[in-house]
Design a protein around this nucleic acid. Structure first.
Length: 313
DNA sequence: GAAATTTGACCCGC
DNA sequence: GCGGGTCAAATTTC
């Protein structure tokens, strides 16, 4: 499969990200030390914070555009600043060729009675709808969204929103592809920093099996890093507290398996399931096929303003 | 008028 | 050929 031919790339990517993460961790440690010291000045702290963000930015860029690895990595080319989003360089070919390799994962967002839908479905990013499609076997059409800053900042993140057929409680499957490289990634408030796995749900089992298969196929590194990255993004994109940084750095340090059993609980009034799927192992996102009453007033929704427009679906 | 959404057409992989 | 994903012109909204 394609995976084999990319294994060298994964290894390279893994190494680079590992180095960047280590670098970021060191800076974070230093910052932590300085925060506890009255002698350090503000400028020095800001410098360290900048370095930390830089490390993450480079990691993000690598994962978003693996083909640009060489341009991003200071370890290979001896320094230099990360590729700017405003760069004139036209990455179309790279993006196209790396589209398949973009990290992809699915969340299931279940709206429970009384939950604030806007809080639950709003991931903090700005999305623009670019398509809608009836999907075979699905009761509701799938909406296609891309980052609002796709053009201006070359942010390639996209997401697909599909309302599940099973409708006892409103369940949305949101598939994300690509990582935000736009400025929002650093500013967005962490709206969904949770991961809830419900092992009793058959679909989760299916997806976990797929993940396991992909791990068996030797792509554990990629999945791990991509998930780690996403988690990082959620945590760091909020107010970048030292705690959140350290937490993620610990995850990286301990090489924690983020797929099978890690659970967090949501305080958002909804259950949010993260099924991390490697892009190559996801032929199609699982679709629920059970029948359901369509009593919901929501026909579709605007991911930026869910109350405003469920009319489009 | 700019930005966002809608929707039919097109492209591509299976 | 079919289905999923994207494009882009038309339309709507702000």
């Amino acid at each position: 499969m394609e995976r084999k031919s990319n294994s060298g790339e994964w290894e390279k990517m893994k190494k680079e990200i590992s180095e960047l993460m280590t670098e970021g961790r060191d800076y974070a440690h230093e910052l932590k030390f300085q925060l506890g010291s009255s002698s350090s000045d503000q400028e020095s702290r800001e410098h360290l914070a900048k370095k930390i963000l830089e490390s993450y930015h480079k990691s993000l860029t690598i994962m978003n555009h693996p083909a640009e690895l060489d341009q991003v990595s200071p370890h290979i080319h001896g320094g230099g600043s990360p590729k700017s989003d405003d760069s004139d360089q036209e990455p179309h070919q790279n993006i196209k060729s790396s589209k398949k390799s973009m990290p992809r994962w699915t969340e299931k967002v279940r709206i429970t009675p009384g939950a604030e839908i806007d809080r639950t479905l709003d991931d903090g990013f700005s999305w623009r709808k670019y398509g809608q499609k009836d999907i075979l076997g699905a009761k509701f059409p799938r909406g296609y969204y891309r980052c609002t800053y796709r053009k201006s900042q070359r942010c390639e993140a996209t997401k697909q929103v599909q309302r599940s057929n099973e409708n006892h409680q409103m369940l949305f499957e949101i598939s994300y592809r690509g990582i935000h490289s736009c400025s929002q990634a650093a500013n967005v408030r962490s709206a969904i920093p949770v991961r809830v796995l419900e092992p009793n749900q058959p679909q989760e089992h299916e997806n976990l099996e797929m993940v396991k298969e992909s791990l068996d196929a030797g792509h554990h590194n990629y999945n791990h890093q991509a998930h780690l990255h996403q988690t990082l993004q959620y945590h760091l994109s909020s107010t970048p507290t030292l705690e959140s940084n350290n937490m993620m750095l610990q995850l990286a340090d301990q090489n924690i398996d983020l797929f099978g059993s890690t659970s967090f609980s949501s305080d958002l009034g909804a259950n949010v399931n993260y099924d991390y799927l490697a892009s190559h192992s996801v032929g199609s996102v699982s679709h629920s096929t059970s029948n359901s009453p369509s009593e919901s007033p929501f026909e579709s929704f605007d991911p930026n303003n869910p109350f405003k427009g469920f009319g489009g679906f």
